[in-house]
Design a protein around this nucleic acid. Structure first.
Length: 211
DNA sequence: CATATGATCCGCT
DNA sequence: GCGGATCATATGA
């Protein structure tokens, strides 16, 4: 199967527009040792400008510098003393918006991911932001990585996915911005369970975003 | 400096 | 469902 890599223009839109379009897209990882893995994006969350839940809300700091750079780069942060989380920078340069990758479905290289995770079973490999980063061996060395022009990690375009569910973000008590999106009914969603979806939509993917 | 906290995960109950 | 692990980061003294 031949797929096109997502172009910079895909990322250069508002986070809450990019987020649902990321669902179903394939994230490809080439590990430092050359092994390959790929996963299908199942769940994401958008973080925009003027968003109190965003790491960028209080301005640029050494940690979130990448968020204020050009779109299409990876923002990786370390949290809870033991987990890494990966984000895709969106919007315009210096806007400070991004989409958190929360869960995915293993496609290729499951053996590699089992090794990195120390756990078996496809449901336990990438179902959660910390798990996903660990399965793909992503850490702060990957902070700032270019998803469009770099090698090692990139996203490939796929046909439009099934129904998208929408809900509130994990750990964010706010009902106005329902910026958590996942593929409805997928068993690969993370266990940060905010309850049932508050809406289901069929979001047509822009023609330029599909092969 | 000191301290509070977190876009989490896991094991146990 | 709950609490512990474990530390970078941000903030205030």
């Amino acid at each position: 199967m031949t797929r096109r890599r997502l172009p910079r223009s895909f990322y250069a839109r508002a986070a809450h527009e990019v987020a649902p379009d990321l669902l179903g897209q394939v994230l490809v990882r080439i590990f430092p040792d050359g092994a390959r893995a790929s996963v299908r994006i199942i769940e994401v969350e958008a973080y925009g400008p003027d968003d109190p839940a965003s790491h960028a809300f209080r301005g640029e700091t050494p940690r979130n510098t990448v968020m204020f750079g050009p779109p299409g780069h990876l923002y990786v942060y370390f949290t809870y003393g033991m987990h890494h989380c990966m984000n895709v920078v969106t919007g315009g340069t210096a806007e400070g918006s991004a989409v958190l990758l929360r869960a995915a479905e293993p496609l290729e290289g499951e053996e590699e991911m089992v090794l990195r995770r120390g756990r078996e079973g496809p449901l336990d490999l990438c179902s959660g932001p910390g798990r996903l980063a660990q399965a793909l061996a992503v850490d702060r060395r990957d902070d700032g990585l270019d998803l469009v022009a770099g090698d090692g990690l990139w996203l490939e375009a796929t046909p439009r996915p099934e129904t998208i569910a929408v809900g509130t973000r994990v750990g964010v008590h706010e009902t106005t911005r329902r910026w958590r999106y996942w593929l409805d009914g997928s068993p690969f969603v993370s266990r940060g369970r905010p309850g049932p979806p508050t809406a289901k939509r069929r979001i047509p993917r822009a023609r330029s975003m599909t092969p």
